[in-house]
Design a protein around this nucleic acid. Structure first.
Length: 595
RNA sequence: GGUCCGAUAGCUCAACUGGAUAGAGCAUCAGCCUUCUAAGCUGACGGUUCGGGGUUCGAGUCCCUGUCGGAUCACCA
């Protein structure tokens, strides 16, 4: 049963009976801890239709609900707030409906399809902390929609072509001496990244020399021989020069292999990959089509532009004067291709940092100008940058936090702390490894997901490896604790079949509180989906774990003499474990049986 | 300079979209393991919600204004 819905219905009935009117929206909110009750009706707005003061209105509604419905056992009125105490028998019904629903937390398919893009790295350097936030966020949003019954397509666009990869290629050609991941023992993406750094180092030196020779700063970068080589490679690549294409394929291959293992460890996946090299030509054609039908215009030097001044934006280049495409060009092609591939999708979500807000504003306007009605279904899930205590991450200053390194550190730390706490003395090496992986990544994911995505966040390494308090491991620990209880119950032969615990008619406050939390799960999923905010679920899981721990500490389960109550508490505990597991799974976090 | 976003406890974050005396975690201090896992629980301390106006029964939340951060406005991606 849906208590919230039922209450709203009853309240409307009360309004009709008492005042002969209804309202569009009844303001029902959780009751503050300091007052008795679980649901609070805000009665200030109702004073208008009752033609009485808020307190009097609240009292009348409260009395009606107690006498005319089976839900409310008593009530109190504080100012214009009507605090309702739901009967324990009703809470038991709420619990029962959750217990009996094997698919609680997963809604049936709703026949809607959406696409979620995330990750989408460049292929010239390894993934870093910013990508971790992006990936965990995109993955979690996708899982949230799946839980709500949507068919979800997880995709990414791989920026595999362009000047950035040519820079790595140029440096490798000059200094690489045939080095490969195999020969060097370096992970592919890191190896390619090494040459990207090498490129930058050499470019800087060459630019410095040129400036000393009297070349202007702006020209120096273009004239530097190593930059010339990279630009030449980009040109050759577009002309399909076999040698260049071969090198490009080889080095991208190294990167994909490296990314593959990183994604695997992160626990994220994709249903379909798009490659910029395969979409930019479509984008180019679309731009030319837009030029023909007057959506865009050409400047004297041959470059193609879109004028968005009537939309409050600027003019934006779509094709360079030499006819080559820019970032925007391929994004146009990619978007069109995706809607061709998946004509049923009703929304496309781009998980991309907020530094690109302008870009997406422009992109969506361009798609609309090209006549695509679905342009309005495109949404930029814009998230804030991850800052370090030392300030911004800057690849050029070497302050980026590498994704592979960070995950390893978290796992090592988890293992260290497990050992210190003496948790894993009887475990095998394999079990220790798996558990540390689960805890380390759980800590990392929770840390990055608990903050509202829109907000910029601070990544303090010391705080992120905390395993106590508002953390993933705290929740994982609660799950493990409950599982221990379930195991004990099983060895004692206690099985919570319905007949027994349905006789339970009174609840402890902690039990009531936890049932209330659980009953809000679907609501929280909807809220998280609406706001594209896994933080809602992260905080839900934390609150639930916290609530259960309060129950756990105040009530020794196996000391209970009443067998019906004992069985109820086993069932109750197993439901909590299950909901924690599901909520965490939606966040991409696994929970252990023991820890 | 234009546009957009942000500012809440010493620190990191919440606050159900306008509701009650603004809540958690960390840190600090004081308690709780002979009892189901102490990675836990209980309590204490901690606030002019950046400043100033306004809207209304009611504002951290909406409007105006100022201050301070950040992003963006490339023939980069």
């Amino acid at each position: 049963m849906n208590l919230d819905q039922s209450l709203r219905t009853e309240i409307q009935k009360a309004l009709t009976a008492l005042f002969n009117q209804t309202v569009d929206h009844v303001q029902l909110q959780p009751t503050n801890q300091e007052f008795e009750g679980s649901h609070t009706l805000v009665c200030f707005p109702l004073a208008k239709i009752s033609k009485k003061g808020p307190e009097e209105t609240a009292r009348l509604i409260g009395e009606y609900l107690v006498t005319h419905t089976g839900f409310v056992s008593r009530f109190n009125v504080v100012k214009g707030f009507l605090n309702l105490v739901i009967a324990d028998r009703v809470w038991m019904e709420v619990f029962h409906s959750i217990y009996a629903n094997k698919n609680f937390g997963n809604l049936p398919a709703n026949d809607q399809e959406i696409m979620i893009e995330y990750s989408s790295p460049n292929t010239n350097k390894p993934l870093h902390l910013g990508h971790l936030r992006n990936n965990f966020l995109g993955y979690a949003v996708a899982e949230i929609y799946k839980a709500l019954g949507y068919t979800v397509h997880k995709v990414q666009i791989i920026n595999d072509r362009g000047i950035h990869i040519c820079k790595s290629m140029a440096a490798w050609k000059l200094f690489g001496k045939g080095e490969t991941p195999h020969s060097s023992g370096i992970k592919g993406d890191h190896l390619v990244g090494k040459y990207y750094v090498e490129f930058d180092k050499n470019l800087k030196a060459q630019v410095k020399d040129l400036i000393q020779q009297g070349v202007s700063e702006a020209d120096a970068e273009k004239q530097a021989p190593i930059m010339q080589l990279a630009i030449d490679m980009l040109r050759k690549w577009e002309a399909k020069d076999p040698e260049t294409v071969h090198l490009w394929k080889t080095m991208n291959g190294w990167v994909y292999e490296g990314f593959g293992s990183t994604y695997k460890r992160m626990g994220v996946d994709f249903d379909k990959l798009y490659y910029e090299s395969e979409t930019y030509l479509l984008g180019k054609n679309e731009v030319l089509r837009g030029l023909d039908n007057g959506a865009f215009f050409k400047k004297d030097d041959g470059s193609v532009w879109v004028d968005l001044t009537s939309d409050g934006l600027d003019q934006k280049v779509l094709l360079r004067s030499d006819g080559t495409s820019v970032y925007m060009t391929q994004d146009i092609g990619t978007a069109i291709l995706r809607f061709r591939d998946f004509p049923k999708i009703s929304r496309q979500v781009y998980t991309v940092g907020n530094e690109q807000e302008y870009h997406f504003k422009v992109l969506f306007l361009i798609l609309a100008k090209l006549g695509y009605a679905w342009a309005k279904e495109c949404y930029h899930l814009s998230y804030g940058m991850v800052d370090l205590p030392t300030g911004k991450m800057k690849s050029r200053e070497g302050t980026v936090v590498d994704a592979d390194d960070l995950m390893q550190e978290m796992v090592d730390e988890a293992e260290k702390q497990s050992r210190e706490l003496g948790k894993i003395e009887e475990a095998t090496d394999q079990q220790i490894k798996e558990l540390s992986e689960m805890i380390g990544l759980g800590a990392l994911k929770f840390f990055l997901l608990k903050v509202d995505p829109k907000k910029r966040m601070l990544f303090d390494p010391n705080e992120s490896i905390q395993l106590q308090g508002h953390t993933g491991p705290f929740i994982q620990y609660t799950h493990a604790r409950i599982r221990a209880i379930i195991r004990k119950a099983e060895t004692m032969g206690i099985s919570p079949d319905e007949g027994y615990w349905k006789n339970v008619n009174s609840l402890e406050p902690a039990e009531r509180e936890v049932i209330f939390l659980i009953s809000n799960y679907i609501h929280k999923l909807n809220e998280a989906a609406r706001d594209y905010s896994p933080a809602v679920i992260a905080n839900f899981a934390f609150d639930l774990a916290k609530g259960y721990n309060q129950f756990y500490q105040s009530i020794p389960i196996f000391n209970e003499a009443d067998q019906d109550k004992l069985k109820f508490r086993i069932a109750f505990s197993s439901v909590v474990a299950d909901v924690i597991k599901r909520a965490m799974a939606v966040l991409g976090i696994q929970v252990p049986e023991r820890m």
